[in-house]
Simulated assay, not measured.
Amino acid sequence: MKDITEKIEIHHPDKAVDTGAYSAGVQVGEWLFVSGQGPLDLATGEVIHGTIEEETLHTLSHIQKIVEAAGGSIDNIVKCTVHLENINDFDRYNVAYASFFKGIKPARTTVQSVLADGIKIEIDAIAIIPKKS
């Protein structure tokens, strides 16, 4: 059995280029902490600009793949923190966000933030992934 304090780095399975000095995810025991994700093309590291709805779903798909790489699913996500470049996009982002999650939606905080590279949204997440017996 692994020590619960052991940190395991979780990589995005599709990420081909380094986009910063951070881990996509860090797992400690059953807890998975997913770094802020944005609407990036993971082959090039370039931003994929689109509507707030498109950028929201693209960003959430990155989070989903990181959680799945750790052995979980989107149902394991318990908390998201969302940074919107423009809080006036809230209603449209909220519809797209709500469409992504089925069942119990994660707890969530949404704030307006200054974001890099012209992205409209950045999302980080916390998931609990029970160990398989």
Results as ranks from 00 to 15, higher is better:
residue 110 T to M: 07
residue 51 T to F: 02
residue 92 R to L: 13
residue 110 T to V: 15
residue 39 P to Y: 02
residue 75 D to L: 09
residue 12 H to K: 07
residue 83 H to P: 09
residue 115 L to I: 10
residue 74 I to A: 08
residue 119 I to N: 06
residue 10 I to D: 04
residue 51 T to A: 03
residue 66 I to F: 03
residue 29 G to L: 09
residue 19 T to L: 01
residue 73 S to M: 00
residue 76 N to D: 15
residue 48 I to K: 15
residue 56 T to W: 03
residue 93 Y to N: 06
residue 125 A to I: 12
residue 87 I to Y: 11
residue 70 A to Q: 06
residue 53 E to M: 05
residue 17 V to P: 02
residue 99 S to E: 13
residue 78 V to S: 10
residue 61 S to D: 10
residue 40 L to I: 13
residue 63 I to V: 15
residue 74 I to T: 13
residue 100 F to H: 15
residue 27 Q to W: 01
residue 102 K to T: 15
residue 37 Q to N: 08
residue 124 D to C: 15
residue 105 K to N: 10
residue 66 I to C: 08
residue 91 D to I: 01
residue 48 I to N: 13
residue 56 T to S: 12
residue 126 I to P: 11
residue 91 D to M: 04
residue 44 T to S: 14
residue 75 D to N: 07
residue 98 A to L: 13
residue 34 V to W: 02
residue 69 A to G: 04
residue 85 E to N: 14
residue 95 V to F: 03
residue 123 I to E: 04
residue 43 A to N: 13
residue 72 G to K: 13
residue 116 A to R: 00
residue 89 D to P: 00
residue 62 H to Y: 08
residue 103 G to N: 14
residue 61 S to A: 11
residue 42 L to K: 12
residue 105 K to F: 04
residue 92 R to C: 02
residue 95 V to H: 12
residue 103 G to F: 12
residue 88 N to D: 15
residue 59 T to P: 00
residue 3 D to T: 06
residue 61 S to M: 11
residue 99 S to Y: 14
residue 112 Q to R: 08
residue 116 A to K: 01
residue 118 G to F: 01
